[in-house]
Simulated scan of single mutants.
Amino acid sequence: MALILVTGASSGLGRHTADALADDGHDVVVHVRDPARLTDADGTARWKGIVTGDLAEPDEIRDVARQACEYGRFDTVIHNAGVLHSPEEITVNTVAPYLLTALMDKPARLIYLSSSMHRTGSTDLRRLASGTATYDDTKLWVTALALACAFRWEGTTSHAVDPGWVPTRMGGPGASDDLAAGHRTQVWLATHHDATPPTGGYWYHRQTQTPHPASRDEAFQARLLHLLESHTGVPLG
Rank of each mutant, 00 (worst) to 15 (best):
P35S: 03
A2K: 14
V142H: 12
D136S: 15
T185K: 05
N93K: 00
A65Q: 03
L13W: 00
T52C: 10
A222H: 10
Q67A: 05
G72R: 00
L228T: 02
D75G: 06
L3D: 04
E229H: 13
D162T: 01
Y202F: 07
T157M: 01
H16L: 14
V29N: 07
A181M: 11
T210Y: 02
H231R: 13
T44R: 14
P213G: 12
R126V: 05
T134F: 15
G43R: 14
S122Y: 00
I4E: 05
P58N: 06
T101L: 04
L3S: 05
R46V: 14
T138V: 01
H159E: 08
S86T: 04
A133R: 00
A22I: 02
P197Y: 02
L84C: 06
T191N: 07
L227Y: 03
W153A: 08
A133T: 03
A36E: 11
R73M: 04
D105K: 09
H193T: 11
E89R: 08
S176M: 10
P197Q: 08
T91Y: 07
Y71D: 09
A214W: 00
Y204L: 07
D59A: 15
S158I: 07
V51H: 09
P213T: 08
A56M: 14
T232K: 11
G82S: 15
G172W: 10
R126H: 05
M104T: 05
L125M: 11
R46A: 14
V83T: 09
A41N: 15
R169N: 09
D24S: 13
S116V: 03
K139I: 07
R184H: 11
L224E: 02
P35W: 01
W47Q: 06
L147R: 13
L5N: 11
K139P: 11
T91W: 02
A102Q: 08
P173G: 07
A214P: 06
I111L: 15
H79V: 00
H231I: 02
E89S: 09
D34N: 15
T39D: 13
D105A: 14
S116R: 04
H85Q: 13
A181F: 03
A175Y: 01
M170K: 06
R66W: 00
A129I: 02
G82T: 01
P97M: 09
M104R: 01
E229I: 04
R126I: 01
R37W: 11
G131P: 14
